[in-house]
């Protein structure tokens, strides 16, 4: 057999298979996005943001005011808990503890945590917070989201800081800077856009999570700022309303899906723009 044409054929085959696989993934993504966007845009309107959910069969009324606020509240509190711990922990791993065995263990555990299915995190928080506290509550929901944010932020921070060349730190040490100043004014500064991107992508990820909230903050139709009780969220609302038999609730679910998708998309785009900005800068 002619080996040259044989190799050409295998080359073509490999390319064809990979193109096919990529297309399947891409087509599914396009279908999902198209479905969500086309169905959602029909159902979206101003009262979605200003009204509480209406009873079933009451067409053309009702919104998800409480769920919007709840989603924002849960995500914000989760970020406030998860981001500082992740950034400071990542800083420890990249700097003070860079040679310690302990850091390698932490780093590995963190990577493992990042791949735990989010529903497991939901049930875990249910066991440690919801049951002892006597009911579904917002703090538990925010904690579950924070547990998802934490390892992603930790890893990104560690990676971004490790990319800053050692000579830069040495130059600061050589001027007589103490270690904490080197970290804050040189290393963080040099890796800021990368860390920021990681944080943004982590927040974008939890903004679309349903499973960790199902057993923790639960859901209801009211407008609340009380984190001691159940807090409504868009994602759980989608889950519950989409499965309901009522046409107006299903429409609400589509509208909520549309908004969540667009929000996550925007967060992701901002994150990517930051990466590009960073690459351009050098």
């Amino acid at each position: 057999m002619n080996t040259l044409s044989n190799r050409k054929f295998i080359n073509f085959l490999a390319m064809a298979i990979s193109v096919l696989c990529a297309s399947v993934g891409l087509i599914l993504l396009v279908i999902i996005l198209y479905d969500v966007l086309s169905q959602g845009i029909d159902s979206i309107n101003f009262r979605l943001f200003t009204q509480d959910p209406a009873p079933p069969h009451l067409n053309d009324s009702g919104g998800l005011k409480g769920a919007f606020l709840g989603q924002g509240l849960l995500t914000l509190v989760a970020a406030v808990i998860g981001v500082p711990i992740g950034v400071l922990g990542g800083t420890y791993l990249a700097e003070y503890g860079r040679n310690a065995k302990f850091s390698k263990i932490i780093s590995n555990i963190s990577d493992l945590t990042a791949s735990i299915p989010s529903i497991v995190i939901g049930t875990f928080v249910y066991a440690i917070m919801v049951k002892p506290m006597g009911g579904f509550n917002g703090w538990a929901g925010a904690t579950a989201l924070a547990i998802i944010i934490l390892p992603v932020t930790l890893r990104t921070t560690q990676d971004m800081m490790s990319m800053v060349p050692w000579s830069l730190r040495e130059a600061a040490f050589a001027l007589g800077a103490p270690y904490y100043k080197v970290i804050v004014s040189i290393v963080w500064r040099a890796s800021m856009s990368g860390i920021f991107t990681g944080v943004l992508l982590a927040i974008a990820r939890v903004a679309g999570e349903t499973a960790p909230l199902l057993f923790t903050s639960f859901n209801h139709g009211f407008f609340t700022l009380n984190m001691q009780g159940a807090v409504p969220s868009l994602t759980v609302s989608i889950y519950q309303y989409a499965a309901s038999p009522y046409a107006n609730w299903v429409k609400l679910a589509w509208a909520a899906a549309f908004v969540v998708t667009v929000m996550v998309l925007i967060l992701n785009i901002i994150g990517r723009l930051f990466i590009r900005f960073k690459v351009k800068k050098g």
Partner: peptide, 21 residues
Amino acid sequence: DLIRLRSSMGMVFQKPTPFPM
């Protein structure tokens, strides 16, 4: 005191090390 020692011994490295500022 290393901080005092280092501020009396400047160092210039092989590659330029401008700080990101």
